[in-house]
Every structure is written in C-alpha cells, then in structure tokens.
Design a protein around this nucleic acid. Structure first.
Lengths: 208, 208
DNA sequence: CGTACTTTTGAATCGCATCAAATCTGGTGG
DNA sequence: CCACCAGATTTGATGCGATTCAAAAGTACG
C-alpha cells in the first residue's frame, strides 16, 4: 500500500515541516487493536492515514462511549497538553496511523513559526467546523440537515460531495435510507437539484 | 448590571493578560442586533458575557443557517485568521459582549507565552469537547445521549448539572419533555440515581 | 464472472416532537 | 409577609418522521 500518496493528500499533513516529518513513524494497525489505554503516558501526536481510529471511554459497568471517531487527520489534539490519555485509543478497523514524537512536535511548534501558525489555524478551523456540525445535528428533520449542510459546507447553495451518500448519511446523523428518501422527495418537490455528486438548492422550503 | 463578576466567572476570560484586558471594550447589545455582516472587516475578537450570540449564514432565498450559538465565552475563534467575516454575527437576545481589538490580541499571543499556551489549550479543549458533543448528538435515542453525557462530561459515572434541565435538554438536542420523560423512566427502571442536580449511572442498560 | 458494497424502494414500528395544560419554584414588588 | 408573575418542571394525548428489517437492482473491482 502506498501510504505516501495518502499522506500528501491531506493538506494538514502535507504542511508538516521536514524535520518533524523525518521523526514521524508510520504504523499499520489491525481492526480492534488498542493503541493506548486511559492513563498511558502521552508520547506522540497521532494522525490517521487510513482506517478508523476511535477515542473511547468506558464506564465501569462495561458501557462504552465514543468521544471521537476519525477517519483522517489528527486525533486527540488535546493530548499535546496532557501528560496521560484521558480515554482509550482504539483502531476500529484496520488501517495506518502516523506518529509524531511529542517532543519533536513541541519543538517544531516552538521553533517553526509557520508551523505554529498552521497548527493554530488548524485548530480554529476545526472548532468552526465542529460548531457548525453540532448545530446541524441539533436540527430535527433530515431535510433541514441537508440544507444546513449545503449552506454551511458548500458554496453558493451548491455542494460537491466527495464521499458516498452512505458516508454522507452517517455524517448527517441519519440512516442511509432516510437520506435517500429525503433526497428524492426534495428532488421531486423541486427543492433540490441533484446531478451525480453535486447537490444544489433549487427552491427553499417555506418552513425555513 | 455587574459585568465584572460575570467576566471573572469565566476561566478563559479571567486568564486574559492585563494589557490585553485593558484594551478590551464591553458592549451591551439588544435582541436581534446585527453586530457584523458577512464581508465586514474583522477588527476584534469577541467573547459573550451574557445573552446569546449567533453566527448565521443566509442562502440567497432567505434561508437561514445557524453555524454557532454561544451563550458564554469566545465566539468565532477562527476570525483570528480571517480578514473578513464569513457569516453574520447577531445577538439573538439582549446581553453583553466583550471586544478585544484584534491587533492587541495578536500582539498578546505573540509576546505573552503563557497566553499563547492558554489559547492553544483553549482551542484544543474546545475541539475535544465538540467532537464528543457531535458523537453524542449522533446517538439516536434520548437515553443513549444521557448516558453519553454523564460518561463524557461527568466523572466516575456521575455528573453535577449546573444549568436547568430545559437547558440540558437543549444541549442534548432533545425537547425538554423528552428529557423529563426519559429521566423519570430511567429512574423508575433503576438505571439512574437522580438527586437534585446530581445524576448518576446506577445500572447500565443491557443495550449498551 | 463473481463478490462486495452502494443505491434504491417497501412496509411496519417506535420514539420523539408537538400541542396542551397543570403544578411547582424563585424572585419581585406592594 | 404575601400576592403575583415568569419560568421551570411535570404529565397527557396525538401524529409524524426516522429507524428498522427486508430485499432488489446497480456498480466497481479483481
């Protein structure tokens, strides 16, 4: 598998300064593999190249709560400020993860101003995106979420999807059936233009 | 109204270095007041002291999408990296907002290492919190969201609520009726201990 | 060609939203 | 101190919409 291509495809990773990148280490992980446990000492910053990594907290009675699911990019950014992990880190499916020794990461942040700026920008952007995502998930109906997605993630009432609809449904907090049905209903009602991967608002629902 | 007390009550604001704070400006805003419009030049960093501020994007057909609602703390952190606003900023209800001139803010970030660190930590923490919040909102049932909240926001299967249940319901993306009903059902089923503002997991649902 | 996955549609069910209304609570002013 | 009011809490009845289970058709890939 050509990990290099996958890494370059991620803007945040492509911008990592050479010295830090030289210190990074790629690791292939199996499905279900536990990478770190609560309380483990934080030794590195993690980025997902492929597969799915989850941060999980377990209640003592065996309940399991997912704090984060990530299929791409940095995981657990706040580990930068922590001595130990506050949750388990598990690979939900087989894939590859890039590790940056935390010491090198901190050094790069302190000495490379461009990287520091980039990291700050990355976090800010992430906060914005996540806030919008939360607002979207708070909407009660499938149609509202779809329009919210188009208006917030797209431009000019139009969005180009770069993943499958099933994955989109998952991102919208819906079952894929609900998404398919709502899309075709909105299309039939003349409220959405749908052409392949491009979805555009045609006419807005009166309710909004 | 005593804004000072409210400001000190917010850890993130209390830690703002004196010079920057000296440059800050408090502004009382009325309900519905538009503070900035899309395209306006970013001149300051904003923090909500009281009331509710919203970031809103409008489709040309008059649709309105909420990107962020904030009742406390910094709003639009990513404006630090932007020349102009990418959405409207509106006071949804009357309140007070603190403005930090962006120039002073940047200077403080560059020169005050403790502040810089604090800001980085603030953003990281926010990213973690928001990711967990998104996962919670992706859960389909009221009970699951409640347990997720307790396990992720509380400690040791127990959480102390510092806001009304109505506000909690809103945070969980539920109507207050649904929250009340689910709480009393879970209590009746012996799955939750509820005493005033303390909610604790008693026995976990088999489904989890 | 066959396998795995996505896309699509159908039918039944369940849980949450919604509308309604009563009770409780804390805080204000007379 | 009490009357009063706004808001939170609580319970009830109803309907809608998303989930769920099922299955068929389409599509990519080796």
């Amino acid at each position: 598998m050509d990990w290099h291509t996958l890494i370059e495809a991620q803007p945040d990773l492509a911008r990592i300064p050479a010295p830090l990148r030289a210190d990074s280490e790629l690791m292939e992980v199996g499905a279900g593999q536990v990478m770190f446990r609560i309380g483990d000492r934080v030794k590195s910053m993690m980025a997902v190249i492929c597969g799915e990594v989850r941060l999980i907290r377990r209640g003592k009675s065996g309940s399991e709560v997912i704090l984060q699911r990530s299929r791409e990019g940095f995981v657990a950014e706040s580990s930068l400020h922590a001595k130990t992990y506050h949750c388990d880190v598990v690979a939900a499916e087989a894939g590859a993860v890039l590790f940056f020794p935390m010491q090198s990461f901190r050094t790069a942040l302190a000495e490379d101003m461009a990287f520091q700026n980039g990291w700050l920008a990355h976090l800010s952007r992430e906060v914005s995106r996540l806030r919008a995502h939360c607002e979207r998930l708070s909407l009660r109906s499938a149609a509202e979420r779809i329009f919210h997605y188009i208006e917030s993630e797209g431009t000019d009432g139009k969005v180009v999807l770069n993943h499958s609809r099933k994955a989109w449904a998952n991102e919208l907090g819906l079952t894929h059936e609900a998404l398919y049905r709502t899309l075709s209903r909105l299309h039939a009602d003349g409220m959405l233009h749908i052409e392949g991967n491009v979805v555009a608002v045609a006419r807005l629902p009166a309710a909004l």
